[in-house]
Amino acid sequence: MKNSGLEKEHVVIDETSLPEYQMFLEAADDGAFHSTRTSHVAERISRDLVSSPRSIGIKYTILVIVGFFLSLLICAQGNIGLGAVSFKIFEEVMSFIPPKFCGIVCGTIFSGVPFFFSLIVLNRFEQRYLLFRMWWLVLLLPILGAVCMQFYGNVMRDADDFMWGWASSWTIAAVMTPYVFETVLYVFALKQRTLKTSST
C-alpha cells in the first residue's frame, strides 16, 4: 500500500532519478553547517511577498488615491480637475463626443489610471494577494472613489448644471473599468493553472 502511494507520488520523476529522489526524501540537515547567507535569501524572497494584509491594504489604498489624483491631472471629471491642461482636455473631449459617451471615457480614465499605476508599482505576488485575498478592497475602492467624486462635484459644489446622463454613465464606467481590467489581468497573468490529469 505504501509502495503504491510512493509510486503515485513519483509519477513525474524519471525512473533513472528514483534513487536520487529517495535520497532527497530521506535527506535532512544535520545542523553542521549554517550559512548567514541563508537568511538573506529567505529575506530577499520575503520582500517580494506579502507579510501583512494591513500593510498591503494601506499601500494599495494610497496607490489608488494617488491614481485618482493623477487621473484628474490628465482629464477633468465633470467640474473637478487639477491644472488647466486637464480642463482643456475635458473641453476637447466634450466638444466631439456626446455627453453620455464622454462620461464613459472620463469614468474609464478616472479608474483606469489608478489601475495602471498600481500595476506598475505592485509586483505579481502583491497583485495576486489583493485579488485573491483582499478582493473586497479592490471592489470597494472604485465605488468609494466614484461616490466621493459625485458627492464633491455635485453636492458640495452645489452644481446647477448637473447632467444625469453624463453622471450615470461616468459612475458606471468608473466602477466597472477596474473590474474589467482586473478580470483581464486575472485571466491572462495571475490565474493559477490546474494540473490536467489523465484518467488512465
Binding site: A42, R133, Q192
Partner: peptide
C-alpha cells in the same frame, strides 16, 4: 503562489 509570505517562510 497567492503572495503569502508566511507560507513561503
Amino acid at each position: 503562489f497567492e503572495g503569502d509570505g508566511r507560507a513561503f517562510d
